[in-house]
Write a protein that binds this DNA or RNA. Structure first.
Lengths: 355, 355
DNA sequence: ACTTCGCGTGCAAACGCTTACTATCAGGTG
DNA sequence: CACCTGATAGTAAGCGTTTGCACGCGAAGT
């Protein structure tokens, strides 16, 4: 008593187009054509088919459909974690644009593990995703870069696209769309804002060598200092990752280490700013009365903190990623490399430095 | 010069198992078996096949594979928006557990539109998702409930499962797994906390008739008042949705409407608490010195606000959803209905009321 | 009345893979 | 030396769709 494929434990199974055809007294071809819409069938036939579909509760088999030609269009996004606001907003943008373009959106998370990321890309390739969008940083050693650029090539070979968001290009000869943000520009603006308020000792919270996001923002910070002819003090740059807890830790340790030697803080992102604010508050220091602070990202925490920060167009990044990937064919195969701008959002976390 | 299906614009195409077989000088069956692993092929043959795979950069066609039997396992989650921290955390839990169970996770968002939600479920059904997890509230009119319960039936018929997270059951005869949180219990604890600190005029921010989440929390609030024999004043219950902006609006309007007639606030969630705090701050009122506040959810904002709040096991909800759905067959077809507990997390946003 | 359309259908061949069944060949038995 | 056995590998039958082609049959053209 062999079970057919598709049978379920309780003996029922998905109904097929064949059954619909039988029930309606027509051929499968007719059913297929009527269901796919654009087909001039006679109203009577159409009605019978529709009734059969309803009665059997027929649902097309997406896999068979995909196999037989009609590619089921989908877009994949791979990110470290969906609970980080930045990634979530980008994902939201991807989802939105994918929906607009009539695509399903597959989301995969990696927890920041390059190995899992590679596996994810491979998986998405099997699923025939039209585009695979990679967001955020990974530590990129040579082996990784080589493997990823190979994936880019094979994706390109089958008409799919690799999109890199907020991470460096893999090289000029790698067929991938690249979308970057102007970290340095934003950081320059934010730091300049502090400098023009009279601050000279500005703590940089969250430097992290090897991570382009942090590096870009650090670069902007240093450039602003240079522009204002303020000597650069490496002791003011504190290393850490980009989470709230890290912001808290860094500030707490800093305050415990000795007398406060800064009047303002540039946090590498809003999460860190939040953690740092909390640590300051625990020592009775208030923002902006005692310490000025700017963040980066303009994500929800900055509302609660009333934080002056740099706006990054997160959702637009996602939308642009999808758009560029899908337009690719129409554009005749170029692989664009765009940089999205940023701008300062003023709230109330900076005060002119007391003379 | 017809193009074969699978051809791409630039003339290259995905290589097939047939080509691998030819290149390796074996039959497709052999390649299939070797690639699927569990098959005792001779080392020589295996090596040749592997080399051919490498050279052609062969990737199995997931659709064909699914059609031919091996069901490609996946789990789908449908939510309003991925940028809401609550949904994001649940999604994270789903993703995690899906990965553990070797499943891909499909995420779809609806923007809260019931119509889009229905479409999404249908889509997931076509994709043969093993489970479809619905999270969060929708306004459920009768037409919607009927359609959704029909989907539940047909999903069940084909061996898939509908999971309802944080929304009311569709009825006892609807085959769906239901996971709820103890909103009332958490709200009771939070309100009691305020009451035991001496507060008697407690503003409830974010009631919303028809939405079970808000209703459950309101119920707990009222129960606590009753338990403390505090007269219930409808004027203290303010209606609004669950976003930051709404919290800000509600508090701002309240303060503008007349002299402050409350000493504490119970915000229906942390986002609202954040907005309310901001509005208070704008009027020079501080939490907790001037007004006490508790929130609900224990999501990131509560860290920045240093907010006493009710912890909801968001990620566990997601994990549990996947677990229950996948274990379903093993359990012999029961449709569990579980309620996850909550507990108060004390921070520093409540002060005893000044006598 | 006899072609000529053209609309509405049906037939059957893919699509790329898995897997039950079968064939082959070596070596070991009786 | 015929025969069985076990390890490998091949054959071919699906899986559920889509779609090019062919066919039948009334209406319109001559």
């Amino acid at each position: 008593m062999a079970r057919r494929a598709g049978d379920t434990a309780d003996g029922r199974r998905r109904s097929t187009i064949r059954e619909v055809a039988d029930k309606a007294g027509v051929s499968v071809a007719t059913v297929s054509r009527i269901l796919s819409g654009s087909y001039p069938a006679s109203p009577a036939t159409r009605a019978r088919v529709m009734r059969a579909v309803k009665e059997l509760d027929y649902v097309a088999n997406a896999h068979a459909r995909a196999l037989a030609g009609t590619p089921s269009k989908s877009v994949a996004i791979v990110l470290n974690s969906v609970i980080s606001p930045h990634y979530a907003h980008v994902a939201q943008g991807v989802e939105t644009q994918a929906a607009v373009a009539g695509r399903l959106c597959l989301i995969g998370t990696t927890g920041g593990d390059p190995e899992r990321e590679l596996a994810m890309v491979k998986f998405m390739r099997e699923q025939h995703a039209e585009a695979v969008i990679l967001v955020g940083n990974v530590v990129a050693d040579d082996k990784y870069r080589e493997r990823m650029s190979q994936y880019a090539h094979t994706l390109a070979a089958i008409g799919s696209r690799l999109v890199l968001c907020g991470r460096p290009s893999l090289g000029p000869d790698v067929p991938a769309v690249v979308i970057e943000y102007d970290h340095a520009g934003g950081a320059f603006a934010a730091t300049s804002h502090l400098l023009s308020a009279g601050h000279r000792r500005i703590l940089f919270l969250g430097s992290r060598p090897g991570y382009t996001t942090a590096e870009g923002r650090l670069t902007g910070y240093r450039q602003a200092l240079a522009a204002y002819k303020v000597p650069h003090d490496p002791a003011l740059e504190v290393e850490g990752t980009m989470e709230w807890q890290e912001g808290h830790r860094m500030m707490k340790e800093r305050l415990a280490a000795g007398p406060r030697d800064f009047t303002a803080v540039f946090a590498v992102n809003d999460l860190i700013a939040g953690g740092a604010c909390r640590a300051l508050a625990e020592q009775g220091l208030r923002v902006p009365d005692d310490v000025s602070m700017v963040g980066f990202d303009n994500l929800p925490p900055s509302l609660d903190l009333n934080l002056t920060t740099v706006h990054l167009p997160h959702e637009e990044v996602g939308r642009t990623a999808v758009r560029l990937a899908l337009e690719h064919e129409a554009r005749g195969g170029a692989f664009p490399h765009v940089t999205l701008g940023t701008h300062l959002v003023l709230r109330d976390s900076v005060r002119p430095r007391m003379q």
